[in-house]
Structures are given as structure tokens and as C-alpha cells.
């Protein structure tokens, strides 16, 4: 076989890049962030968290609250609130976050967070699950759940 395949692969790559650019599908570098608040079950023994602590919790590196209670993670499956939360507090894109947890689960290192389609489902889960932590759009859920201040 000679090098006939190279132009084909190069053409596919270039076509995808052109499509991406002109189709307006490039991942936005930073659209207007929605107001996301970190919420927790009433049993959670803290009122505030550092940004680093939020990252450690959502990457499974911190698994217990200060009273020994197990931390249960609740996430949204997709959407701007999900992307904004991950970008602001976890330092990952939704794809990177998904790959991170796939790696953890498929190598026996952890259990993936609960993931919900709608904020209402997530709010209900956090309300009813001791030790649970999640995030919600601030405007719609203010004063409905215990919110944690992020320092």
C-alpha cells in the first residue's frame, strides 16, 4: 500500500476544522456565565467551602464531611448550568469531567456521581439525601435549599 490514505485523512481533518469554524460550532471560550449556586442537604455540617474544596469533592478526592458523614455527589447531565459549574469550580469541561469519572469507574477507583436531567430532580435528590451536595441555577432555586457560600 502506498500513501493514498494520507490525503483522505488530511481532507477529513481539514473538513471538520472548516465545518467547526464556519458552522459556529467552536466551543465558546467564555459565554456569559449563568448564576450557579452550590447546594447541600440540611445535614451537611458546613456553611461555606473554598473553591479548592469544591473541586476536590466533585473529583472524588474528598469523600467525607467533617462529621464523618459520607459525601454524595449530584450533578446535572448537561446544559449551561452544568458547564458553568464545572468551568468555575472544577476546572474541567463537561467532556473532561465525563472522561475523568469514566476513568475512575472503569479502573475500580470510584463510583460516578448521580446525574440528573433536570434541576428539579437534582433539588429533590439533594433535599432527601443526607450528605448530598450539588448545584442549581441561583435565580430559580434561591432560598429553597441550603446553599453553601464559596470563598
Amino acid at each position: 500500500m502506498k500513501l493514498r490514505s494520507i490525503p483522505l485523512i488530511v481532507r477529513i481533518v481539514l473538513a471538520c476544522m472548516v465545518l467547526s469554524v464556519f458552522g459556529g460550532l467552536i466551543v465558546p471560550a467564555g459565554h456569559a456565565a449563568s448564576e450557579v449556586m452550590v447546594v447541600a442537604n440540611d445535614s451537611v455540617p458546613v456553611k461555606s467551602l473554598s473553591r479548592d474544596a469544591v473541586q476536590e469533592i466533585f473529583l472524588g478526592r474528598k469523600t467525607r464531611w467533617s462529621d464523618g458523614q459520607k459525601i454524595t455527589l449530584a450533578t446535572l447531565k448537561e446544559g449551561d448550568d452544568h458547564s458553568d459549574f464545572l468551568r468555575m469550580y472544577v476546572g474541567k469541561t463537561p467532556q473532561q469531567f465525563k472522561n475523568y469519572w469514566k476513568s475512575q469507574v472503569f479502573t475500580g477507583r470510584g463510583k460516578a456521581p448521580e446525574a440528573f436531567t433536570s434541576p428539579d430532580e437534582l433539588a429533590e435528590f439533594v433535599t432527601n439525601t443526607p450528605g448530598a451536595i450539588g448545584y442549581l441555577p441561583q435565580r430559580a432555586y434561591q432560598n429553597q435549599l441550603k446553599s453553601l457560600m464559596i470563598e
Binding site: V13, C16, M17, L19, S20, V21, L25, I26, V27, T93, Q95
Partner: peptide
């Protein structure tokens, strides 16, 4: 680099 949600190079 991930250019779009469906394409990465």
C-alpha cells in the same frame, strides 16, 4: 484540542 462537542484533534 476539542474544537466542538463532537470533534477533537
Amino acid at each position: 484540542y476539542r474544537f466542538t462537542p463532537w470533534f477533537e484533534l
